[in-house]
């Protein structure tokens, strides 16, 4: 049996069939959404704020979960056992509260003030007439987003190479081509609808695989006995340091500042429906996360030694376990779920980056005194999506190390910069433009400083102190500067009439 375990992942006709079916589905969605997305820039970038509550829930949830959940969390649970649970708990709880409170304020405000990007919101909330705040935000968003997109393509290429015995370069080009086809044509509607399908692929794979892998091992008791025999701490969720636990829970702070997740909230048709999205999003998040944790635990029982995994890499656990236990067609679903995770994140990041270029840089900074026809803006947006994909590919090819260096900080950097400043912008009337700029800079710099100071890095994940620094800098500078004079009106736009929340 063990000879069969130390194997590589390889797809057969069933798996290829399931995977190709999935690809055809996402491309068909792109074509279906083309007409709607061609209407105007609001339709192209936020679906005209007409998205259904179910679509918004799933799209917001899977846009935030890249291959990190499928390959990273499963590998983490394999290595650490039950204590990996804290890595998923933080973001699920944070996102529940965001759907219920933060998102509703954001959606209401954005409708009243016609904001379709995150920099649009900041510029409007703080009367950013000279464009300084918008420029700082666009710079932060573009640097991190293009790196993110590039890294997603590289991950997709590697997954293609591992699953279908292809050259990684060909895999990267294929991943980029599929994403660009449905994003260019279908815009936000296509991205959201494909996210919804991708959410189904991911949840099916993450529920079916652990159930079958555990039952093939004679049930959960047998798996737990095996884990206890290997190492008692695998069954102890408290077997980690206090700093590590805080760091794991702190991953959730990143959800408050990643614009490709936040823009989902702006797109819903009725802000009151975000309550329903909160419920669906939380159930989905819990199912996917605990599915990933049980895959890691079952995987450890099946492969007690990491050397039994291809390249002795725990990130290969998910596809290898699937190949061992699932029917080839279901294995195809598992392979598709890896691409679903990668593409659902890459497409959302691509649209956010493109909206920053077209809406923020071109329409609001370079041509701010002109009225530009909507159709022309949509054409420019499509061109920018293609240019950004080429830039991400070129960037990844030219400087892969730099890309992965930037991605190390992307979740934390964006979370620490945008998270505290946006929360204060929504909830604290004394927040000022200068305070927000200070918070953006402090959050980003603290992330880098903490990461590169070994004594600090060992204590806790950099996002936690950087978030606190962003919050502190925004508050301190705001206390010494004057908030916009129309703050009361701005706050009124965030609240439901007669029901402040």
């Amino acid at each position: 049996m063990e000879e069969a375990l130390a194997t590589t992942v390889s797809a057969n006709t069933y798996a290829i069939g399931a995977f190709v079916g999935y690809l055809l589905l996402v491309i068909a969605v792109g074509v279906y959404a083309t007409r709607f997305s061609s209407t105007g820039i609001s339709e192209f970038f936020v679906g005209g704020r007409k998205m259904n509550r179910f679509v918004v829930a799933l799209s917001a949830v899977v846009s935030g979960r890249s291959a990190w959940l499928l390959l990273g969390v499963t590998g983490m649970a394999y290595k650490m056992g039950a204590s990996a649970v804290w890595a998923v708990t933080g973001y699920i709880v944070v996102e529940l509260f965001m759907f219920l409170y933060y998102a509703r304020r954001m959606r209401r405000y954005c409708e009243v003030h016609d904001c379709i990007t995150l920099p649009d919101f900041y510029a409007s909330r703080f009367n950013d007439r000279d464009g300084l705040l918008r420029t700082v935000l666009v710079a932060i968003i573009l640097i991190f987003m293009v790196s993110y997109i590039s890294a997603q393509f590289v991950s997709g290429g590697k997954a293609f190479a591992a699953s279908f015995d292809l050259d990684p370069g060909t895999g990267i080009l294929l991943t980029a081509s599929i994403v660009v086809i449905y994003t260019v044509f279908g815009g936000f509607l296509a991205v959201s609808l494909t996210d919804m399908f991708q959410a189904f692929f991911m949840v099916v794979a993450l529920i079916v695989l652990p159930v079958i892998a555990i039952s093939d091992k004679n049930g959960l008791n047998a798996v737990l006995l095996e884990l206890g025999r290997l190492d008692e701490t695998l069954l102890d969720p408290t077997a980690l340091s206090f700093g590590a636990a805080i760091g794991f829970l702190g991953i959730g702070l990143g959800s408050t500042g990643n614009p490709h997740v936040l823009v989902r909230y702006i797109s819903i048709d009725d802000p009151e429906q975000l309550r329903f999205s909160a419920l669906i999003g939380t159930v989905w998040n819990v199912l996917m996360a605990w599915g990933a944790l049980f895959i890691g635990l079952a995987g450890r029982a099946w492969f007690p030694d990491v050397a039994m995994l291809p390249n002795a890499d725990t990130e290969n656990l998910y596809p290898v376990l699937a190949q061992l236990h699932l029917h080839p067609a279901l294995f195809g679903v598992v392979v598709a779920s890896i691409f679903a995770a990668i593409m659902s994140t890459a497409d959302s990041q691509l649209l956010v980056a493109a909206s920053s270029v077209v809406r923020d840089v071109y329409e609001k900074i370079l041509r701010r005194d002109e009225v530009i026809p909507q159709k022309r803006l949509v054409i420019y947006s499509r061109m920018v999506v293609i240019i950004l994909v080429l830039a991400a590919l070129f960037f990844g090819w030219l400087a892969e190390e730099l890309v992965f260096w930037l991605v190390l900080f992307a979740w934390a950097g964006l979370g620490a910069a945008i998270g505290p400043t946006s929360i204060l912008a929504f909830y604290w009337k004394k927040t000022t433009r200068a305070g927000v700029i200070a918070g953006l800079v402090a959050g980003t710099l603290t992330t880098l400083f903490w990461y590169y100071t070994p004594a600090l890095k060992q204590t806790v994940y950099e996002l936690v102190p950087a978030f606190a620094a962003g919050l502190l800098a925004t508050v301190v500078v705001s206390l010494f500067t004057r908030p916009p004079e129309d703050t009361e009106q701005k706050f009124a736009a965030m609240e439901k009439p007669n029901s402040p929340d």
Binding site: A82, T89, V93, L96, L235, T238, T282, A289, W290, S499
Partner: peptide
């Protein structure tokens, strides 16, 4: 015991919290 609490009770508790908060918010906004 802590294993059961985190791997089974915790996810159920998060979902129950979501139901409670949504119900509470609905009641608040009438």
């Amino acid at each position: 015991m802590t294993f059961v609490l985190t791997m089974f009770v915790l996810p159920a508790a998060i979902i129950l919290l979501a139901f409670f908060l949504v119900y509470y918010e609905r009641g608040k906004s009438g």
